[in-house]
Design a protein around this nucleic acid. Structure first.
Length: 277
DNA sequence: CTCCTGTCCTGCCGGC
DNA sequence: TGCCGGCAGGACAGGA
């Protein structure tokens, strides 16, 4: 469930807590999440200094000073916990990884469903790595504009819903924010991508940027699992218009219709069939 | 090539 | 009350 805004919030929490600090030790409590932990994981990171924390799509990138980048993907249920030097770390169920820093800070990764992944990639190989080479532009970059989006969509026969979820077209959107953006732009999730007009692309681009920015300002969305690094909750879920609102009234128009839920490629789409065409 | 389905996983919730 | 089935879904692999 962590999408771009939630991952951004985690990175914003991590940056002041870990940047410039040295990794003393790393403990893993099981061999894998969705994929195995890196070979010789602890040996490769121990003694290195954290120089920066970045986000790319839904991935957290922890840049080390020894050429390695530690990648964390939170999957569906991953939570990064920061334990301050003055606090005592009590290991909880599903804490699969913990990292001790030189100032006494501890970073722990908790992931009940184990849909997350942790990777180590050499700094100069990240753009060639299979998890990153296909990822499209960041929504807040200049590269992402209405002409780009229209060009990406014009030859696609699949639904606009699936195209916006496609990380190679745009990085960072997930099921929740795609539903909300399509509602804002009055576009049905069932529309074929190649039927989306230039004018609609001109609406989609700012709607995507605006929705993501507002979500970041609200501290992201908290559903079942997601929390901030300090355990606090986000508030953007209170601004959802359609996601999870099946059988509720459409909030934005006087159509008196109900939000309906349909299944697209195994994912739920929520929309107002009267407003969104 | 493009699109779509299956797979991984645990916790929660509704129905009986 | 307890059990069980269904659902949640990000990203990749592989099939159509």
């Amino acid at each position: 469930m962590p999408e771009l805004p939630e991952v951004e919030i985690v990175c914003q929490g991590l940056t002041p807590a870990i940047t410039g600090k040295t990794i003393i030790s790393l403990k893993q409590n099981r061999p894998d999440l969705r994929v195995p932990f890196p070979d010789d994981f602890a040996k490769k990171v121990q003694g290195s200094k954290i120089t920066a924390v970045k986000r790319r799509a839904k991935y957290i990138q922890i840049i080390l000073d020894n050429q390695w980048i530690m990648i964390i993907h939170l999957g569906m249920s991953g939570v990064v916990k920061i334990i301050k030097p003055c606090d005592i770390y009590e290991k909880k169920k599903h804490d699969h990884l913990s990292i001790d820093l030189d100032d006494g800070t501890i970073i722990a990764l908790n992931d009940p469903r184990r849909f997350g992944m942790v990777l180590l990639i050499k700094e100069n190989e990240i753009n060639k790595h299979k998890n990153f080479k296909h990822i499209g532009p960041e929504p807040f970059s200049n590269e992402f504009n209405d002409k780009y989006l229209y060009d990406q969509l014009k030859n696609k026969t699949g639904s606009i819903k699936n195209s916006l979820l496609d990380q190679s077209i745009i990085a960072g959107l997930g099921n929740i924010y795609v539903c909300e953006v399509l509602y804002q732009t009055s576009i049905s999730p069932l529309r074929k991508s190649n039927k989306i007009t230039k004018k609609e692309c001109e609406n989609l681009v700012p709607a995507i940027i605006d929705t993501l920015k507002k979500a970041i300002q609200a501290g992201g969305s908290t559903l079942k699992d997601y929390k901030h690094t300090d355990g606090k909750l986000g508030y953007f879920q209170h601004q959802f218009c359609v996601y999870g609102k099946e059988k509720e009234k459409c909030p934005d128009c006087t159509c008196n219709e109900y939000i309906i839920r349909v299944n697209q490629s195994g994912r739920s789409s929520f929309y107002c069939a009267k407003k969104q065409k």
